[in-house]
C-alpha cells in the first residue's frame, strides 16, 4: 500500500537518520519504504509467543585480551582523513547556541 507513510512521517524518519531530503526524494522513499514494510508485514502471520529474540546467530562470550600496552595508530595517519582540522583537533560548527538542535 502506498499510504502507510505520510510526507511528514518520512520527514520525521529522515530527521532521525540525519538525512536532508527534497520533495521528490520524500515522495519516492514514501512509496518505496511503504512497499518494503508491506512485505515485512508478513512476519505478523507467525505465532511468536514465547519465542526468545535471537540477536546473534552463534553464542559468543566476552573475550578479554591481556591488559598489556599496544602501539596505537599514528595520529597523522588518522587525522589525514579529517575534513577540517584546527591543529590536532577536529573542527565542527558551533554546537552550543541558539539553535534548538544544539
Amino acid at each position: 500500500m502506498t499510504d502507510r507513510f505520510t510526507k511528514d512521517d518520512i520527514q520525521h524518519i529522515a530527521r532521525l537518520a540525519r538525512l536532508q531530503l527534497d520533495d521528490e526524494q520524500i515522495e519516492q522513499y514514501r512509496l518505496q519504504l511503504g512497499a518494503v514494510l508491506e512485505h515485512v508485514q508478513m512476519l505478523s502471520q507467525l505465532d511468536l509467543d514465547g519465542v526468545e529474540p535471537l540477536s546473534h546467530p552463534i553464542e559468543l562470550n566476552n573475550r578479554l585480551n591481556d591488559d598489556s600496552p599496544q602501539a596505537s595508530l599514528q595520529l597523522d595517519d588518522v587525522l589525514r582523513n579529517a575534513p577540517q582540522l584546527e591543529g590536532q583537533f577536529l573542527a565542527v560548527p558551533r554546537i552550543l547556541g541558539e539553535s534548538e538542535d544544539a
Binding site: 524518519i13 529522515a14 538525512l19 518505496q32 565542527v92 538542535d101
Partner: peptide, 28 residues
Amino acid sequence: DDLFELYAKSRSQGFGPEVQRRVMLGTY
C-alpha cells in the same frame, strides 16, 4: 548552519539512494 546541518547535508550528499533507503528503514 549548525551541527545538525553538518550531519544531514554531509550524509545526504555522501550516501546514494539505496543506502539512504536502508538507513531510513533501519531507523524506522
